[in-house]
Design a protein around this nucleic acid. Structure first.
Lengths: 349, 349
DNA sequence: TTGAAAGCGCTACCAG
DNA sequence: CTGGTAGCGCTTTCAA
């Protein structure tokens, strides 16, 4: 590897002082046209890239935004990440991504990863950090986590998408409060369904609890009884949807419709249903509470709630950028869920 | 935001010199037990995090690995990223991820993003960088790209997963050379299929060209004619699979099986087939050339080539880490594709 | 419009 | 085993 070229070499090469080179790089003060050109030529010639270390040391800015997520493999996070990354780049920032592997089931071990991420963000001098899900999504946080999060928030602006912790210095933003669930239950109800199952999601995770709560409330509002045998939780992916639906079917609970936590879970549910000779939507209707990318390509096309995760991602990064700028806390837009009716739900009797 | 605490404050607080604090932080020299404890207590008390800027400036290491990918939304990249991220973290590195949005169709604009990423990696002092796909995957590279890549490779170890460029300082690694395609074609052939369509993928992208080449070769080896009406390219996602398959059907070309570029494309093809009243596998068999996460949950379960993208991710990051260590170039393991027979292909007449 | 010089926080070397 | 100190490459006064 060639040794990196420094500002001094550029200065020497163009016959000016380092201060002047710095000025042309940052446009921080007027420089004569002639000098500017000479300097730019030298920079070009040596493919000079100013050292972020040195810059950061004096400017106290890294132009790095940290993003901490549990599982980039999950389309929900992926969709958000894409927006975050895009907005960050547009604003001139690079993104340091930590994929923590956090899951409620393994919180004992995976919390370490999150704490480690918090520490690293401070070390790298991130100008702002986004905590998306993970332990922040849990109903109850571990004390170490709270402390770690707070330590970080004391040093750098942080926006967390998760369950609010009061007295915290981070700004918390929440996902939908369950309004979408009402729409879904009502849709199913209007189609004649009375035995509506809920499938997928992990207990203790705020979003699951919230949706389950909304599901119960919606049933109650419609005068339907709440039957706990109709809820089969597991996790957020296709295998979990399969498992949860399979369990539901085997246990013999009668139902005519299933609400799946998201498209992944719905896919698994489709599969489990088919395995038991049940057709969608002829025998069972399926609706997803969180649409991913391919709902429109499922067979049958999947009726789903579009939670506008891209907008959520945009909202979260905007809030962080605003916070970094020191702007007054803008009222964050909370995307409103939208029911997209496709082919997986059917009117019955 | 509280001002960051520095090593001097820790030194003062624990009544020792900064050198000593540095020693306990880095374990770079023996320190008496008593002193070590005092220092550690102070570090803990102030939640001290050493400045990566200052450290990097002197040590010339950032403990950052850069990853440049075109689309984190694509499960192929996502699967690789997860492995990369995991291995990097294990080795003590953080990951700076650039999602460039590169696509062959918009190379004109998106190449800028890649070049920008190269520059940023140098500025941030990445200790190594991984270029996964993007323009590196194209059959022909733009000169600016080559230059940008080379400039970066002159300063930092880089491993690129893509079409090899000779005379380059980056280490190139390639994805499968089409062996899997033979297996797929043979499988279909052995099931009695003679009219095998190829769907999805963008022309000019190395992997597509390679697979198309292998497809042609396999047909030839089996004594089957190559009918260009049987190939319908588009892109790598479900909508593209739909479009390509739909076009194929509408144009009236006869076929009994389709090879889809990947699971996303296969999903779209399933959909297009269904839209035309064609059943899988009764009327048409479908096979995917690149299995993603949910093949086993499709209905019917999707027969696919497992290209072991996770292993690829591991191979790529291992190669980079080795390169960073200055190890001799280890012969990189190239995962061998594996045909996973499920339910989407059927024996015919 | 330009240059000189003082650090930013840390590591590493040199003394002791 | 410990402390002092010289930079690392840059930005930012302060003078000229």
């Amino acid at each position: 590897m060639k040794p990196a070229v420094t500002i001094r070499q550029i200065a020497r090469e163009s016959g000016v002082s380092v201060s002047t080179v710095s000025r042309v790089i940052n446009g921080s003060a007027p420089v004569s046209e002639d000098v500017r050109r000479r300097v730019e030529r030298a920079i070009e010639k040596y493919a000079y890239a100013p050292s972020g270390f040195a810059r950061g040391l004096v400017s106290r800015r890294s132009m790095i935004i940290g993003v901490i997520m549990p599982d980039i493999t999950n389309p929900y996070f992926t969709a958000m990440f894409r927006e975050i990354s895009l907005a960050a780049q547009r604003a001139g920032y690079s993104v340091l991504l930590f994929n923590t592997g956090f899951s409620a089931a393994t919180a004992g071990e995976t919390t370490r990863n999150e704490l480690e991420a918090f520490k690293v963000m401070q070390e790298k001098g991130a100008d702002g950090v986004l905590v998306v899900g993970g332990q922040a999504d849990l109903v109850r946080l571990r004390p170490e986590y709270r402390r770690g999060l707070e330590d970080m928030a004391n040093r750098v602006p942080v926006v967390a998408l998760g369950n609010p912790v009061d007295g915290s210095r981070c700004q918390f933003m929440e996902r939908e409060r369950g309004q979408g669930i009402y729409m879904a239950v009502e849709h199913l109800f209007s189609l004649g369904h009375r035995r509506i199952a809920f499938v997928g999601g992990e207990t203790d995770v705020a979003i699951t609890e919230r949706r389950l709560g909304a599901y119960g409330d919606a049933l109650a509002a419609l005068g339907l009884p709440y039957d706990r045998n109709l809820v089969s939780t597991s996790d957020y992916y296709a295998p979990d949807g399969w498992r949860a639906a399979d369990r539901l079917i085997r246990q013999g609970t009668a139902f005519t419709a299933v609400m799946a936590m998201n498209d992944g879970v719905a896919l698994g549910a489709y599969r489990a249903l088919a395995d038991h000779g049940l057709r969608v939507p002829e025998d069972v209707s399926v609706i997803s509470c969180d649409q991913f990318f391919d709902a429109d390509y499922f067979t049958p096309r999947l009726t789903a709630l579009n939670q506008h995760n891209e907008l959520l991602g945009q909202a979260v990064i905007s809030a962080l950028l605003a916070r970094m700028r020191g702007d007054a806390q803008s009222r964050p837009l909370k995307p409103r869920p939208e029911l997209v009716v496709r082919e997986s739900c059917r009117r019955i009797s």
